[in-house]
Design a protein around this nucleic acid. Structure first.
Lengths: 119, 119
DNA sequence: GCAATTGGGCACCTTTTGGTAACCGGAGGG
DNA sequence: CCCTCCGGTTACCAAAAGGTGCCCAATTGC
């Protein structure tokens, strides 16, 4: 019997050898990541629109975040070859599914805003 | 007209002056935070049980995380004055509600484990 | 020609986060 | 008396994350 990683950790993805849950959590650990997805729930937005909507995020971090979301298939990047060469970002189906879950966290936060710290 | 913070940012909690959503997101940004809540969804656990279940978390980080969750009213700390003076941790109602949402993220991760990276 | 807009990239720095290892204190066992 | 278990705490260090400021390229408007 070969004692494989799969035997010891059956939750690991057989293809990538990583834990899909861990990957997802890592994806959402950024300071602004969830907010980016939440913004995009309202529809496609341009890069600079996002920087303004998120209030405080730097362009560096936003580009990095969007690229990571794109790699993970949560967000689609659309180059408009129109006048201003602006770039649109919108959620994929996967991204929208995850965004819907995040919306529940937003709702939970509002529902428990009473004595949130219960001090 | 006094232009108050409430007028400019109506999502701020009128009592604490903080954004409840931001506070929640900050609560979940830790590397192990969501996993801790997920563990406790199965029921009360002792401190060392958690360190073993989480595989890799240090006692320092786990204590800090549990204290933060306790301050936020997600987790209850129960000192057992029995032989081994062990300490139990369990979810409050609030904590269980949030844990249920996190479970959906776990489910999402499993559902999208096919080509998660879509490289 | 010159400035502004848009979406980046890059170098540098600070802050945050997490791990390691050591120590502690009370209870129990031998 | 000494050792072990449990739940911490502390000091120290490394890595990750994020912000700032500067540069760049293509295009439009003046």
């Amino acid at each position: 019997m070969k004692d494989t990683a799969q035997d010891r950790q059956p939750w690991l993805d057989p293809v990538t050898g990583t834990c899909p849950v861990g990957e997802t959590l890592r994806l959402l650990r950024g300071k602004h990541g969830p907010s980016v997805l939440h913004c995009l729930m309202a529809g496609e937005m341009h890069f600079l629109e996002l920087t303004r909507a998120l209030d405080g995020i730097s362009r560096k971090v936003l580009t990095a975040q969007l690229q990571e979301f794109e790699r993970s298939g949560l967000v689609a990047r659309i180059e408009k070859h129109d006048a201003r060469r602006r770039v649109g970002y919108s959620l994929t189906g996967k991204g929208a599914d995850l965004g819907a879950i995040l919306s529940q966290i937003f709702d939970w936060s509002q529902a428990h805003r009473d004595r949130a710290a219960t001090r």
